[in-house]
Each structure stands twice: as structure tokens, then as C-alpha cells.
Design a protein around this nucleic acid. Structure first.
Ligand SMILES: [Mn+2]
Ligand SMILES: [Mn+2]
Ligand SMILES: [Zn+2]
Ligand SMILES: [Zn+2]
Lengths: 157, 157
DNA sequence: CTCCTTAATGAAAATGATTTCCATTTCTAA
DNA sequence: TTAGAAATGGAAATCATTTTCATTAAGGAG
């Protein structure tokens, strides 16, 4: 008798197993939530969303899973300066849609943007090459964020 | 009889008073340390350096003063992802020497750089204008940081 | 210079996100 | 089935930063 639904496991099954991780029920729920959510969720946000589907999960497991996902490159861990880490699904196997962030310092609204991304990418390439050589750094990552006031916050007095 | 040393108060006396702040002994010592230190100091680092000159100061006052200085624009508050804020003197009245950072994810070494700053500034200008208009944001600040391994850390296996 | 109002201070306690511990459960490969 | 490894959850620990509150000290008015 064949397994009911082999597809149910999603494309990431292989990714987990290939790295020696086990794809547990908790992890699947977390991944499911993450892949379907827009925005930039805190561990607590994720906990809240996972809980109804998996009431026994502990916040500790959320943190641990997020750490694994982050190391696997499946999730980006972000810091917008509000005292808690935020997580964002890094898109499917086709690769991530690279973008940066615009953050409202008043209401914490976050806008994804990719408008000037080509120029940015080019600048990043140059900078990584130039600085890497000059300071003997092996650059692997970068953060570009803009801070300011969103429309609502700049008008409301 | 003239005051012994009116200059002793430094150029920031006016800046404080102008904003309704009092220039206390503790604040002066902190400002003095900060202005003479290279690098990116944590509140605790500053506390350690201030303590010998002003043994009664409390860490709380360090935090509070740093907050004031940061609001006055005299100090930059930075986050390199190591779980504590870092502070850097924003240069004298002549204006800050704008730079960005290269951070080693292994030993936390931080390098200031301004090498590609012209291209970066131009990109920032464009981006701030373009994104500000498109998303109706009043952009006031940005963060650009590169992460990777410094020379030492990338060689030591 | 002295007084008075109020900002500033320091010690201790509180906060709160994240981590660590550890006993228990679940996988997995043989 | 079974032993070893990985994962889990609840409670306790961490630890940078903030809050509270009683006390002190700027600095303007007189
Ligand atoms: Mn995003
Ligand atoms: Mn710097
Ligand atoms: Zn806003
Ligand atoms: Zn290093």
C-alpha cells in the first residue's frame, strides 16, 4: 500500500535529509507557515501561527528550527532594530528574490524594495571585490537598510 | 577674576545647553573618553574607561548619556549583530567623516571604510530620492554593512 | 552668594528576547 | 526490534538594557 501523499512533504524534504537533519512534524508546520506568510515575522509571531496547528510546540523549538533554517539558507534572519529578530522565507529552490528594506522608525512598518537593486548589486560586487582585497576580508554577506518615516507616520503631526 | 579655563568645557558645552541639557561632570568624562577613543565601544567598554576617572558613575548613567548623545547626533549607535550596541563619536563640529563598516563574523573585528563612498553616496542619494517618492517615505538614515571573515579568521582554518 | 525648581544620578529591581539544561520522546538505520 | 542519535518542551538561566525611586546637584532667579 503506497504512502497516501508523498508530495505532502514539499521540496525541502531533500534539503533537510541531505544535511543530516530530520524533517519533523514541528519543522514542517513552521516551514509551511513561513512559506505562506508575507512579511517579517518574529519568533513569537511564528509561535502564534504555528500553535493552532500544533498546540504542543514550544517556543524553544521555534527558535531552534529558525536557527537551522537560517543556517540552511532557507530563511533570512533580519534585524530592524526593534529588539527582536525577524525571519523571512528565502523563497523556493528557484532562488531567492533579492531585496532590501525600508523601515519606518516610528511604526516599524517594513517595505521590501528591489527598485535600485541592479545598481546596488553592481556596487556591492565592486565593493566586495575592492574592500575584500584591500582589507583582506572574505565578504559573504551584506546589509543595506534605509530608515525613515512612512507616509502615515510623517503626516500624523 | 576670570574663570581659570573657560576652554576646558569643550565646544559641546553650547550644544548641550542649547538643547536644555545640563553639562554634568559625568557627561563630560564620557564625552572626553568617547572623543579620544578609536573604535566602536559598548556601554560596558565605556563604563570601564570612565570608571577610573569617575569611580562613582553608574552604568545606568552611561546608557542614559549615550542616549542623549545619540539623539543630539554627537554619537552613532551601531549594531554589528553581536548582541550589544556599539557607540562611535560622530566627530567634531566640522562634521562627521561618513563611513561604513566591514565586520568579521568570527572575531567581531570591525573595519571602517570610505573607499567606495562616492559611488555609494551617489547610489544612496538616488535610492533615497527614488524610494522616498515611490513608497512615500521620508528617509533619514541608512545602514550599509558588509560581513565576512577577516584575514586572520579566514586563514586559521 | 543663596534658594528653589527640576534635571540628573546611582543602586537595585524589572524586563524581555534568546539560550541553556536536562529529562523524555521520536527517528533511523541496521 | 533495538540501540544510538537527534529533537523536543518546560523551566531556569542569561544578559544587555530599562525602569523605579529616593537622593543629589545644575543653574537660573533674586
Ligand atoms: Mn523582506
Ligand atoms: Mn566606524
Ligand atoms: Zn510608520
Ligand atoms: Zn576575524
Amino acid at each position: 500500500m503506497p504512502k497516501r501523499n508523498c508530495q505532502g512533504q514539499g521540496w525541502w524534504h531533500g534539503k533537510f535529509r541531505g544535511c543530516g537533519y530530520r524533517l519533523t512534524a514541528g519543522r514542517e508546520v513552521i516551514l509551511d507557515i513561513l512559506s505562506k506568510s508575507q512579511g517579517h515575522l518574529s519568533a513569537e509571531d511564528i509561535y502564534m501561527k504555528v500553535h493552532p496547528k500544533y498546540p504542543n510546540i514550544g517556543l524553544t523549538t521555534i527558535y531552534r528550527t529558525l536557527d537551522v533554517l537560517s543556517n540552511l539558507g532557507m530563511v533570512y534572519k533580519l534585524d530592524f532594530g526593534d529588539g527582536r529578530a525577524r525571519y523571512e522565507f528565502a523563497e523556493g529552490p528557484k532562488g531567492a528574490h533579492h531585496h532590501h528594506h525600508l523601515v519606518c522608525t516610528d511604526c516599524n512598518r517594513v517595505v521590501d524594495y528591489a527598485d535600485f537593486i541592479n545598481e546596488e548589486i553592481e556596487l556591492l560586487r565592486q565593493t566586495e571585490k575592492g574592500l575584500g582585497a584591500k582589507y583582506n576580508f572574505k565578504i559573504t554577506d551584506h546589509v543595506i537598510q534605509f530608515y525613515g518615516l512612512c507616509g502615515k507616520c510623517s503626516t500624523k503631526k
